[in-house]
């Protein structure tokens, strides 16, 4: 039996990789994928804890997170398409209206 701590560390590493990806990539779609990566890391932690505590609730939560992720992917990608239509780019550095 593998110690559950390993799963948690794996989850933490995945999360960090996702976070770093969000920070260093400039392609909006890739950033979006990195966010999915972070969500998956959290899912892993949830399932791990569910196993640890002999409870089903963690798995149910993962189910809901997947629902939200699906909704988010649909809307987020639609936004990216809309942005691409307006600015002809998905480079987030060119989408910098929020400055002084």
């Amino acid at each position: 039996m593998i110690p559950l701590t390993w799963y948690l560390i794996l989850s933490g590493m995945l999360f960090t990789i996702g976070a770093v990806g969000v920070l260093i990539r400039r392609n909006a779609i890739v950033i979006f994928m990195c966010i999915e990566l972070m969500l998956n890391a959290v899912n892993l932690a949830f399932v791990t804890f569910a196993r640890q505590l002999n409870s089903m609730d963690g798995q149910i939560f993962v189910f809901f997170i997947m629902t939200v992720a699906a909704a988010e992917a649909a809307v987020g990608l639609a936004i990216i398409i809309a942005i691409y239509r307006n600015k002809a780019t998905v480079n987030v550095d060119n989408i910098n209206l929020m400055k002084w």
Partner: peptide
Amino acid sequence: AIILGFILVVMIGVVTLNTVFQGTQGEYT
């Protein structure tokens, strides 16, 4: 970003390794 990521991983590792996870045990073994 990469340095911060390293720090984060280290911190998560420290936390997970040093914590004894406890909680109410459920019925679904």
